[in-house]
């Protein structure tokens, strides 16, 4: 795990206990608490489930059960490059599931998961509103239309190149100082 992200998460977890104190100890508050956790971390970390269970005096399994019932809650942190593959009607017809599978193979993760280095996360979405470009994938906010297996390959090359360029830029900046 990226140490910077890890440190940040540890700090957020430390603060979570005080934020939990704002919620009355009533099991009816479970959903609000889960939403607060997801807003804070962008996903539901395991430690947070235990903290919430402890605060409401519920079994962790019950909190986990409620959290997994709702599709809205994620159990993996978003990657630095969150990839969303559209599987709306138009993209579905144009083979969006093949594109999703391409990403899954390339990254060696399943839909809903994050790579161990937390660089990429993969998610399926239902319609991003540009069906004329089907099948569509998003990397962060950037829309990539008319996706094809070769373009999946190309996307990663581009991200790699951009990364190396940023790296060079950073080095040049440092040596100039």
């Amino acid at each position: 795990m990226d140490s910077e992200a890890g440190r940040e998460e540890a700090a957020l977890l430390n603060r979570l206990r005080t934020r939990l104190a704002d919620f009355e100890k009533d099991r009816a508050n479970l959903l609000s608490i889960l939403r607060m956790i997801q807003e804070t971390f962008s996903y539901i970390p395991e430690e947070a489930i235990y903290m919430a269970a402890d605060h409401l005096d519920l079994a962790p399994s019950e909190v986990y059960g409620v959290a997994t019932f709702y599709n809205q809650f994620k159990f993996n942190p978003p990657g630095k490059y969150p990839i969303k593959v559209c599987l709306g009607t138009a993209c579905h017809v144009k083979g969006g599931d093949i594109i999703l599978e391409n990403f899954e193979r390339k990254l060696d993760i399943r839909e809903g998961e994050t790579t161990p280095d937390r660089d990429f996360s993969l998610e399926r979405v239902a319609c991003v509103g540009c069906c004329a470009l089907a099948p569509v994938a998003l990397v962060g906010e950037a829309v990539h239309g008319h996706m094809a297996p070769s373009k999946v390959e190309g996307l990663f090359t581009r991200i790699q190149v951009e990364k190396e360029m940023a790296e060079r830029e950073k080095r040049r900046h440092e040596s100039a100082r």
Partner: peptide, 21 residues
Amino acid sequence: GRAYIAMARRGFDTVLTFYGS
């Protein structure tokens, strides 16, 4: 006093979970 077993997920994917146990 509390259930150490729960149900997770939903629909066809619903399973028993021993999360935390």
